[in-house]
Design a binder for these strands. Structure first.
Lengths: 117, 117
DNA sequence: TGCTTATATAAGTATATACTTATATAATGA
DNA sequence: TCATTATATAAGTATATACTTATATAAGCA
């Protein structure tokens, strides 16, 4: 683990608390494999848009994920320059891949064309 | 990661939620290095006995830690046969060692003589 | 410009959580 | 047996959390 200057137990607990919610943990696993936008999460989780938005806000505020606006859409991805990125990666690396869910979305034609640049 | 038959995201999130509390995360790190009894935790955390007991209960109920009675004392330690032990270990392994805190306790003469068998 | 779509925020609410104090259980030892 | 020590549990409470609905912001397009 590199560049974790102030990696105390309080910091670690804060990260674990954020990841200790099934929705957010799944979100983080997803964006570690595929850049994803809010409306796709709404589809994937069958959850209201504000609920999704509020979870993403927590993850963004902490620095775990980052956003990128592309027209109307805002894409979320794992923030590789997050100071505790390696800690996050360590936690999610062995979790079951969620790539198939994004593929399903794509098969249904519900994926936003985000890969066209 | 071995023997995690039903290691889905819900299970993982549940574990992370338990560890996502500074007190419990510290407890788990401590018992990964030293077997410890309740009254020692009370000293270490400067916290009420019931509060400590309730945190330990959550950790024990989940299976993360195990207990061993020795006379009046109940010693807690990391449960190495917990199905998700390797996941827990992966999370805590790089956290700052808490061994010095137990040593301080010992220096103050506040350590229960638990190693006399 | 006005309409639509995507996303964020605000405010309210029900439930979960981490404590508190009081009490129960269990082991030790006089 | 009774007192002491260690621990657990029960019940109450204040705060945190994850939603809800309503509304605001922002971009694209007719």
């Amino acid at each position: 683990m590199i560049a974790n200057k102030t990696f105390d137990l309080g910091t670690a607990a804060g990260i674990l608390k954020l990841l200790g919610d099934k929705t957010r943990l799944t979100m983080v696993k997803i964006v570690s494999e595929n850049e994803c936008c809010v409306c796709e999460f709404v589809d994937l989780f069958d959850m209201s848009q504000p609920a999704v938005s509020q979870h993403l806000r927590k993850l963004r505020d902490s620095g775990i994920v980052k956003e990128r606006r592309k027209g109307q859409w805002i894409y979320y991805s794992l923030n590789t320059s997050y100071p505790y990125y390696s800690f996050v990666l360590q936690i999610i690396k062995d979790l079951p891949s969620q790539h198939y869910r994004v593929e399903e979305l794509e098969a249904q034609g519900n994926r936003v064309t985000c890969c066209d640049e």
